[in-house]
């Protein structure tokens, strides 16, 4: 047997994913496509929010959607019905998407003509926060029935997000959802996040979300 060598590596376990994500982000920046990583629990209303967003913005922006789930393609069909170019990604049991899976999805989608691509991550408040997908912006959606204490329980998700959308505001009173306390809980973890309360059903707050998207797309193109 040869001599045993000891090699100092000193590298984060996800360093290679972080490098791949950074390269992808730079490529998308060069071509002017804004990739938004949408993260939330299952049932938070991501697909409903996306459908309303596509209806509102499809005349002014060219939008693609990647739907990631462990299985099935129901979400891709739903958003296709709202005029978006959509692909369904199956993670095959994995709880999150990483940069390589995202890149594969983008290839399938074809991003050359697109201003904006939504990556609808696997419904989960833990693992998707750990993996950089190469997205320019991270948006997390918390629905009011989940409760205002979630930033305390899943701190990393709230720390990494640029924007926190509070969905289903129309039913907030039925769930004793305290928006002020929620904002305090988010601020403790992430003083810089923008917080937008919305209801895709009544339209409350949706204009602010569309404006945030327009501004993010415009500044990404410069």
């Amino acid at each position: 047997m040869d001599r045993i060598k000891v090699i100092e590596v000193k590298e984060d376990v996800l360093a290679n994913n972080d490098r791949a994500a950074q390269a992808l982000r730079e490529r998308l920046h060069d071509q002017g496509t804004l990739l938004v990583n949408l993260m939330s629990s299952p049932g938070s209303g991501k697909t409903t929010l996306l459908s309303a967003t596509l209806d509102a913005l499809r005349d002014e922006l060219s939008i693609g959607v990647m739907e990631a789930d462990v299985d099935s393609d129901v979400d891709a069909y739903t958003v296709q019905g709202h005029g978006a170019k959509a692909v369904q990604l199956h993670t095959g049991g994995m709880c999150h998407l990483d940069a390589a899976m995202t890149e594969q999805g983008l290839r399938e989608l074809g991003t050359d003509e697109l201003d904006l691509v939504f990556l609808e991550n696997v419904g989960n408040l833990i693992c998707p926060a750990e993996f950089d997908t190469g997205a320019a912006k991270k948006v997390m959606i918390l629905s009011t029935p989940e409760g205002h204490d979630k930033p305390l329980k899943y701190p990393l998700m709230f720390e990494v997000s640029d924007l926190v959308i509070v969905s289903k505001m129309d039913v907030a009173p039925y769930f004793d959802f305290d928006l002020e306390q929620f904002e305090k809980n988010v601020r403790m973890r992430n003083p810089h996040a923008t917080i937008l309360p919305v209801s895709a059903k009544t339209g409350e707050g949706m204009d602010a979300w569309y404006e945030w998207l327009r501004e993010s797309v415009a500044s990404w193109k410069h």
Partner: peptide, 9 residues
């Protein structure tokens, strides 16, 4: 969560 060292030949 960091790979510190490896030993091998």
């Amino acid at each position: 969560a960091e790979i510190d060292t490896i030993e091998g030949w």
